[in-house]
């Protein structure tokens, strides 16, 4: 990672969650390294990778944590949710159980992650059209119902991978930058209207007595 990687405006922590084998690590490698390996091993514990993108002329550094989907690592992985501002909840469009477990993962997020975390429902393996068991519409409707954004991707043929990350990061950026507009960043503790601590004898009184 060169110097260019160190110069960023925002650092967003995003987690990838979902059942084991739905393609989380594949999505991550496709997005960060543009690689795809059909024979990938299941993740042990947590891995993470970063990639910077540009939004509105700002450099946004995404720190994407790829968690193990296996049940036995659940306790460990949940430790990583802390501080995450976005989550990609991934399921396999050809594996119905992974879709059914989406609710469980949502609960997991509610329990361990920040309240305001932005969640995107990602239906992966869209290339397996012939094996599709969850219709796009159904998943879309579910996402809307639960206030999630939704996209179908294919790490294999790279369909929608870039937009998926772009969308969530842009969304996060919007929220954060808006929040910053409302509440100035920490450190600027004194609000503008309390500012007249700068004492000038001539007009200080007028400033104070509004």
């Amino acid at each position: 990672m060169g110097t260019r990687e160190d110069e960023y405006d925002y650092l967003f922590k995003v987690v990838l969650i979902g059942d084991s084998g739905v393609g989380k690590s594949s999505l991550l490698s496709r997005f960060t390294r543009n690689e795809f390996n059909l024979e990938s091993k299941s993740t042990i514990g947590v891995e993470f990778a970063t990639r910077s993108i540009e939004v509105d002329g700002k450099t946004i550094k995404a720190q994407i944590w790829d968690t193990a989907g296996q049940e036995r690592y659940r306790a460990i992985t949940s430790a990583y949710y802390r501080g995450a501002v976005g989550a990609l909840l991934v399921y396999d469009i050809a594996k119905h159980l992974s879709y059914e477990n989406v609710e469980r993962w949502l609960r997991e997020l509610r329990d361990h992650a920040d309240q305001n975390i932005l969640i995107m429902l990602v239906g992966n393996k869209s290339d397996l059209r012939h094996l599709r068991s969850i219709p796009t519409e159904e998943a879309k409707a579910f996402a809307e119902k639960n206030g999630l954004s939704f996209i179908e991707t294919s790490a294999l043929d790279s369909t929608n991978v870039e937009p998926a990350f772009q969308n969530i990061l842009t969304e996060i950026y919007r929220i954060v930058s808006q929040k910053q507009m409302r509440d100035p960043p920490e450190g600027d503790v004194i609000r503008a209207d309390v500012e007249p601590v700068d004492v000038r004898p001539q007009d200080s009184r007028k400033q104070c007595c509004q």
Binding site: V189, I190, P196, V197, D198, V199, P201, S204, C209
Partner: peptide, 15 residues
Amino acid sequence: SYVQACCTYYHQGAD
């Protein structure tokens, strides 16, 4: 900022 506020207060009083 607290001390500055105090200063302002006394300045106003002086005026």
